[in-house]
């Protein structure tokens, strides 16, 4: 996993696995706040999940608020499958799967969880336009499954 500090946040990319050392990230929190940009995460395995849960637990214990920005789909899948991975972190934006019926394009598109909070609470995916043909795209998963990480455990 690579870590790049930028604009008051840490940009993480690559794989989260047994070598990632996520707990060390907490030492880089400022004023008990840590923002993680997860757009570049491509993979997380079970040992990475375990490390992630330990990081979340330690953050909660020491009063550090974690904000997850631009969370990649692989992260969302884990947040949905394993409730403990959510901890007390706040997700402000995330990627979600969309498909275009007109041209067949499939894409992972960024959803602003703050702007669209009301729709997402009703499990309504925000409308998206196909970047290739301009048609309306359809959400490409089950909303009740994909957005379950947004509801309290």
């Amino acid at each position: 996993m690579q870590i790049q500090p930028a604009n008051g946040q840490l940009e993480l990319s690559g794989s989260i696995d047994e070598t990632s050392g996520l707990l060390d990230l907490l030492g880089r929190a400022q004023s008990n706040f840590l923002a993680l940009d997860l757009a570049g995460i491509t993979f997380i395995n079970s040992l990475g999940v375990r490390d992630w849960i330990r990081m979340q637990a330690a953050a909660t214990k020491s009063g550090i608020q974690i904000e997850l920005r631009r969370a990649a789909e692989v992260i969302i899948h884990q947040l949905n499958m394993i409730i403990a991975t959510r901890g007390t972190a706040r997700v402000t934006s995330f990627f979600a799967p969309y498909a275009c019926d007109a041209c067949g394009r499939e894409d992972s598109l960024l959803v602003d969880a703050v702007t669209h909070a009301a729709e997402l609470a009703k499990l309504q995916p925000p409308a998206m336009v196909c970047p290739e043909c301009g048609s309306q795209m359809a959400f490409n998963d089950f909303p009740e499954r994909y957005f379950s990480f947004l509801s309290p455990g």
């Binding site: 999940v49 394993i82 403990a84």
Partner: peptide
């Protein structure tokens, strides 16, 4: 779903 830890995961 609950803890994410343990063998067999």
């Amino acid at each position: 779903r609950e803890s994410g830890a343990g063998a067999g995961m």
